[in-house]
Design a protein around this nucleic acid. Structure first.
Lengths: 170, 170
DNA sequence: ATTGAAAGAGTCTCAGT
DNA sequence: ACTGAGACTCTTTCAAT
């Protein structure tokens, strides 16, 4: 259940700092906010983080992994056209492929659209073939990435939070 | 500088646990590995995390943000065809749009390919118009997402790490 | 590379405001 | 909603192995 919640400048600062480093100690957040905005105790930082979690704004924390360091150098986008009667089945088969890191049901040219991470062009070809061989998949169209310019899901965050309040939802 | 580094089962377990929750205490990781694999002190967990960071495998940690809770309900992929002589300029202009959370230079049908997060269809339309109005952009093609099935950059991780070693790089 | 210990730092809760 | 204090837990370093 997502609760209504209006964020203020203090929440925004907390989220921004934790977004840069999820292990930032709350004591340090408290110190910095006390200096930059207004005096704030550690206990309050703690309570605020809890509320942001309860509101569904902070869903958790995770590592930023260097896939390059692990030998994965290739990213591609794959549009999939599938038999609409088989779409549920196709989706389940796609979920079995670990290289698919994003998968969306889409409107427009394709029914499904995904982003894959692969070791190299040959590995990518294997993954794309595997997608093409799924029963119900009619056609795929791939876009190979040559260079990553932006990859940061939370890039929007500082812009949203500059508005000093979140939307009201239920 | 990325160093050569071979991960073992212990590194893999550390990465997996931190990936699920970046704030997992090292003491707890140490306890769990001691139970599941072999006795391991907290100090060693600490040293191993540091090495994984130095090797570029752990690049940092971040929050998982609930964009739905913040009023952002729409994801779209946008393929961009641009005048190749202006591509550097187009890229710089695209970087100014905060809704673009992924941006790649690509080969194939498009020169550039991006993924955007927007509040709603009308907001998405504004973002896509803004992209289309950039000098040097010839054409865009959008794919609107109806449903998110997978969105987890680190989904690959458990599969890679099951192999119990990383690739050798420099 | 790993340990165990120790000092310092951080977490988390709660009674009081 | 915030604070400050207290008990507990975690981090981080390091000499020893």
């Amino acid at each position: 259940m997502i609760l209504r919640y209006n964020t203020d400048e203090i929440d925004n600062t907390i989220v921004k700092k934790l977004n840069i480093n999820a292990r930032t100690p709350y004591t340090e957040i408290s110190k910095q906010i006390s200096k930059e905005i207004k005096p704030l105790s550690v206990g309050t930082v703690h309570v605020r983080v809890k509320k942001l979690e309860e509101a569904g704004i902070i869903k958790g924390s995770t590592l930023i992994i260097g896939y390059e360091s692990l030998g994965f150098h290739l990213i591609a986008f794959v549009g999939i056209l599938s038999d609409s009667r088989e779409s549920q089945l196709v989706k389940e088969e796609l979920k079995k492929i670990p290289n698919i890191v994003q998968l969306y049901i889409t409107s427009g040219k394709y029914n499904l659209f995904c982003r894959i991470i692969a070791r190299d062009p040959s590995d990518a070809r294997d993954v794309i073939s595997k997608i093409g061989e799924i029963k119900g998949v009619l056609r795929t169209e791939s876009t190979i990435c040559l260079e990553e310019s932006i990859n940061d899901e939370n890039r929007l965050l500082s812009n949203i939070l500059q508005q000093h309040q979140s939307n009201h939802l239920n």
